[in-house]
Design a protein around this nucleic acid. Structure first.
Length: 498
RNA sequence: GCCCCCAUUGUCUAGCGGCCUAGGACGUGGCCCUCUCAAGGCCAAAACAGGGGUUCGAGUCCCCUUGGGGGCACCA
């Protein structure tokens, strides 16, 4: 408890090998929250030591995604900081230096086994139903001999000399002490034959050098956490507080998100990639709120959180270690909630790009008038475009089946339509509040039901089956446009139902 | 095969020994309201995986079983 109130230094350490997805975003969020809550630092570190898997532009996209979600880092590759560089590819020599230290202190050794031999060993062990670990052939090569072979240009890697006996206990903040029998652990590779460090070494060295106090990461790291613990011990360093988050499962709850699942989701208008969220019409506020609650909760009833709320109320102790299935219908719900929470001006601003994408370039003032009447009825921001399309067209396309007053002939509809038209033409007060009584009075005189009467008007004015409330729409559309559309509608009836 | 983690309604969860005939939310079904769509209101169905302990008392602590998940690369 008290520990958490001290400023923490946490790092979000993605590798730029693809798009930022929900699970990683959640990890970053928790890092960010605990850093801000405690007045500590949120550090972005790029783990790009695997040069083969690099994806062009991934780093930039990732940073853009984090910022879109509302997270700014205090130290990172672009903003710098006192413990840089923050890109592991720029720290190669550091890892080599620390690898060498482990050799000297007897905690690591050079291995000359070829990948081919390793594959054979693995295959053999698997056939014998044994853990497919390295058989430790090179573990006892005298250091002088090893150095000679290296000098002679022999290809080699550096391996950690994992203790053969004893137990390594990892203290996980959420799960307590987790014990691993050392004999079940492998002699993991620390530095590859190409000279680049692997995660185990690089992360440990950086976490120490960058004074990271809490390592918050996915529980996929749990199985190798004893190695990380042992590496820290080998250097004589204090370990950070380990926090292993639950994994995010696919909506069915069966297994973690896969490529296939991602494709299926996109067919339903969803995505697990942050880069897609904006285009799909989701607010960053909703993403943050939704994802924060997958594995964390505040109490038994609060569920609407702004980033500021989360910073105030977040605590690592309330994290749930159980895996969580993603629930996209709840995502929609949160998006609605956060749309409703926006001011009309703000909503209009956020709506604008979706209209532009659809080839509509509305005046922002008009959008501000539209905002309140769509606010409560859209799930994603792009829904507004469809719903309000009729505001931005000169000629409405009518649907024959919907045009007549329900249960009435073309002739009757025509005569009623003319009456409405006449009434509207003489109407001075063009406000929803005055238009409504006027129309309803006519409706009563004609002995029609609201459903029939207003249904007809809706079609005449919008040509849409679904629209925002009629009278508010008429007010925004303006007298001239409404009258013209009514004339068009009557014209349409004359042509189609005579 | 081995190692590790997890376990409350379909889903996210509250619950840290008595406040639990288990609370909230999404979703689902019904009703009300209603100009379409929403929103809102009311109601309903829906869970402590099983078995042993510990205890006066267990959803809550321990063990086993079962189930689910993760990992076992010169990836991270």
């Amino acid at each position: 408890m008290t520990e958490e109130l001290k400023p923490v230094r946490v790092r979000f350490a993605p590798s730029p090998t693809g798009h930022l997805h929900l699970g990683s975003a959640r990890t970053a969020l928790y890092d960010y929250l605990i850093a801000r809550k405690t007045g500590g630092q949120f550090i972005l570190r790029i783990e790009d030591t695997d040069r083969k898997r690099l994806v062009e532009g991934a780093e930039e996209e990732l940073m853009g995604n984090l910022r879109w979600l509302g997270m700014e880092w205090d130290e990172g590759p672009d903003v710098g900081g006192p413990y840089g560089p923050y890109r592991q590819s720029e720290r190669k020599e550091i890892y080599q230096e620390y690898g060498e230290k482990l050799v000297e202190s007897g905690f690591a050794y050079y291995c000359f086994c070829t990948p081919e031999r390793l594959a054979k060993v693995r295959e053999e062990k698997q056939r014998r139903k044994e853990p497919p670990h390295y058989d430790r052939t090179c573990r006892n090569i005298p250091i002088e001999e090893a150095r000679k072979r290296i000098a002679a240009g022999e290809s080699h890697v550096l391996r950690f000399k994992t203790p053969l006996e004893g137990t390594t206990v990892v203290k996980d903040l959420l799960r307590g002490d987790i014990a691993f029998e050392n004999k079940t652990l492998d002699d993991y590779i620390l530095i590859k034959s190409d000279g680049w460090a692997l995660y185990h070494l690089a992360a440990a060295v950086d976490d120490h050098l960058m004074k990271i106090t809490h390592v918050v990461r996915s529980s996929e790291w749990l199985p190798t956490s004893p190695i990380h613990s042992l590496i820290h011990k080998a250097f004589g360093w204090d370990e950070p507080v380990w926090v292993h988050l639950s994994v995010l499962l696919k909506p069915s709850g069966k297994g973690k998100m896969s490529k296939r699942e991602a494709v299926e989701l996109s067919g339903e208008g969803y995505s697990i990639f942050i880069k897609d969220m904006q285009g799909l019409g989701y607010l960053p506020e909703a993403v943050v709120n939704w994802v924060a609650l997958m594995g964390w909760s505040y109490d038994d009833h609060t569920e609407f959180f702004s980033m500021q709320d989360l910073i105030e109320k977040f605590s690592l102790e309330k994290l749930n270690p159980a895996p969580a299935a993603t629930n996209f219908s709840k995502f929609d719900y949160f998006n609605k909630l956060h749309i409703k929470a926006l001011s009309d001006a703000e909503l209009a601003k956020r709506l604008l790009p979706y209209y532009e994408t659809a080839g509509i370039y509305p005046d922002i003032a008009l959008l501000e008038r539209i905002a309140p009447i769509v606010k409560e009825r859209i799930i994603t921001l792009d829904d507004a475009v469809e719903m309000t399309r009729f505001f931005f067209t000169d000629t409405v396309t009518y649907t024959k089946e919907r045009m007549l007053l329900e249960g009435c002939s073309g002739q009757e509809t025509m005569s009623i339509g003319k009456r409405i038209l006449e009434a509207l033409e003489t109407q001075q007060q063009w406000q929803a509040a005055s238009l409504e009584p006027l129309v309803r009075e006519l409706m009563d005189e004609e002995g029609k039901e609201p459903k029939q009467f207003l249904g007809f008007l809706r079609e005449a004015i919008s040509g849409q089956r679904i629209s925002p409330p009629l009278f508010e729409s008429m007010q925004i559309l303006g007298k001239q446009a409404v009258i013209r559309r009514l004339e068009d509608a009557l014209d349409f009836i004359g042509k189609n139902f005579s």
